[in-house]
């Protein structure tokens, strides 16, 4: 556990020293929210998708930064799983308070009747955005390509009607579905479908990330270690 904490600590310190990034992380979802403040439902959806893009991009950059030093850490004794778990822990410790802050903004500003839906939607945003960013980093391995792809994903998820089939193939469909329940007062089936979709997304994306990083950092069979 101390190794996981060490990676988490380094992730958080590295992130907090990127002051401009931190400021933008806070401002981007706020700008999305303010842009459609005249419409309650749209402003909350824009906020959630802004947060989804910010957090997934942040996770991608943390993943890419880690790919440089991970081989050295692996040689130092870290397991591939410990490196990934530490990075997720570090990112979560930043992302959850940010989501909490925005939940508070919406709850105070809008006082929605289904307030639990706001908490659930932003919680799902965090839960899905981190593996989305990490899997993109693990597969694309380049910053610009990763940022562009995440922009396309979040943008499409924001623009497409969640009632269609295509948006279900995108990772943040669960967030849109929960917000439909929250804002439009639809039935509980929306929440159940959203939870199932989020769970599948986290398992598939997280599992792919684990496999990709484990393969990249695997112990090669030609190298044998013998005890002194």
């Amino acid at each position: 556990m101390s190794r996981v904490r060490a990676v988490a600590r380094a992730t958080v310190v590295d992130l907090l020293r990127r002051r401009t990034v931190v400021v933008l992380m806070v401002l981007v979802p706020l700008a999305f929210y303010a842009a459609r403040h005249d419409l309650e439902g749209q402003s909350i959806r824009f906020l959630a998708m802004g947060l989804a893009w910010s957090l997934s991009t942040l996770a991608a950059f943390a993943g890419l930064a880690g790919q440089e030093i991970d081989p050295r850490l692996r040689l130092s004794g870290f397991g591939a799983g410990e490196l990934l778990a530490g990075r997720v822990l570090g990112l979560s410790s930043f992302a959850l308070p940010l989501a909490g802050l925005y939940a508070a903004v919406v709850l105070v500003d809008r006082r929605p009747e289904r307030w639990a839906g706001i908490l659930l939607a932003l919680g799902l945003t965090v839960a899905v955005a981190l593996p989305v960013g990490l899997v993109v980093a693990a597969l694309l391995r380049r910053p610009l390509e990763s940022a562009m792809l995440l922009l396309v994903v979040a943008g499409l998820q924001m623009l497409l009607d969640p009632a269609g089939d295509a948006p279900r193939a995108l990772p943040f469909w669960s967030v849109r579905e929960v917000l439909t329940w929250t804002v439009d007062g639809t039935d509980g089936g929306y929440v159940r479908r959203a939870l199932l979709h989020a769970a599948v997304a986290v398992v598939v994306l997280g599992g792919t990330t684990v496999l990709a990083r484990a393969r990249s950092l695997r112990r090669r069979p030609h190298l044998r270690h013998s005890v002194v």
Binding site: P71, R219, R220
Partner: peptide, 13 residues
């Protein structure tokens, strides 16, 4: 152990 050879082995004690 960061790269695999086509053949051969390495033993580290």
């Amino acid at each position: 152990g960061l790269e695999s050879p086509d053949a051969g082995s390495v033993t580290v004690t």
